[in-house]
């Protein structure tokens, strides 16, 4: 149960962080035109396809003792082999996904509707909020996609978390460990729990999506 709880805590927090950061970035890129926007969009699309294990490696190097952040003593900078480091790695994986899918959803809103919103007296913030509300189905898909990616992710959390029993072991890393040990029954049971969690979360999102798109 400890493994399940930590999995939910790590992925849930990473999803929250990536939603809070990714949605405004996606909305901004979808709504505003500025010099260098195509380049930023290309970078974002590239980041969406980044292999998680490479992200894990980058976060590992960043947080390791000789890394740029490893020597700074701050409550805001997580240590390696802690759940916070795993949250950071998963957030780095999820932010581009949330931002990219949100941007696509916002770009899908009729630009003339945005003009109508402005014509009715919206401030730039109100315009962004209303456009996001109109693109809400796409935004939910962005969150679901990010959750799917990080909940199933194993490479990055293994690298920065270390799969330490009772401290940083999560469902995916436990499945890998138990498989290596030959405990296939336990590995399958953990896998079923992982799939069950994904099913419950995605079903909830689907219900939410159907309600908001009515």
């Amino acid at each position: 149960m400890e493994v399940v709880a930590l999995s939910l805590r790590v992925s849930g927090t990473a999803l929250l962080v990536s939603t809070v950061i990714g949605i405004p970035i996606g909305a901004f890129l979808g709504l505003r035109r500025f010099v260098g926007r195509p380049f930023v969009m290309a970078l974002l699309y590239t980041a969406m396809g980044f292999p998680p294990v490479v992200v894990g490696l980058l976060v590992y190097l960043l947080l390791s003792r000789n890394g740029p952040l490893g020597q700074i003593e701050s409550a805001w900078i997580p240590r390696l082999f802690t759940p916070e480091a795993m949250i950071l790695a998963q957030s780095v994986i999820a932010v581009p996904l949330v931002a990219g899918f949100t941007m696509a959803a916002v770009l899908g809103v009729d630009p003339q509707l945005q003009q109508q919103i402005k014509s009715l007296g919206a401030t730039p913030w109100q315009e962004m909020a209303t456009t996001l509300s109109e693109a809400r189905v796409g935004v939910i898909i962005a969150i679901v996609a990010a959750l799917g990616r990080i909940a199933a992710e194993v490479g990055a959390v293994m690298l920065v978390g270390g799969n330490i029993d009772g401290r940083t072991r999560v469902l995916t890393t436990a499945v890998v460990l138990e498989t290596r040990k030959g405990n296939f029954e336990l590995a399958i049971a953990l896998g079923i729990i992982l799939i069950g969690i994904a099913f419950v979360v995605n079903t909830t999102m689907l219900i939410l999506q159907r309600q908001v798109s009515k």
């Binding site: 003339q112 509707l113 003009q115 014509s119 007296g121 401030t123 509300s133 798109s213």
Partner: peptide, 19 residues
Amino acid sequence: PLAERRRVTTVFQRPFLLN
């Protein structure tokens, strides 16, 4: 200024209603 902008509004050819 927003206050001036809000003195004017447009009804377009298509209604562009929110969902």
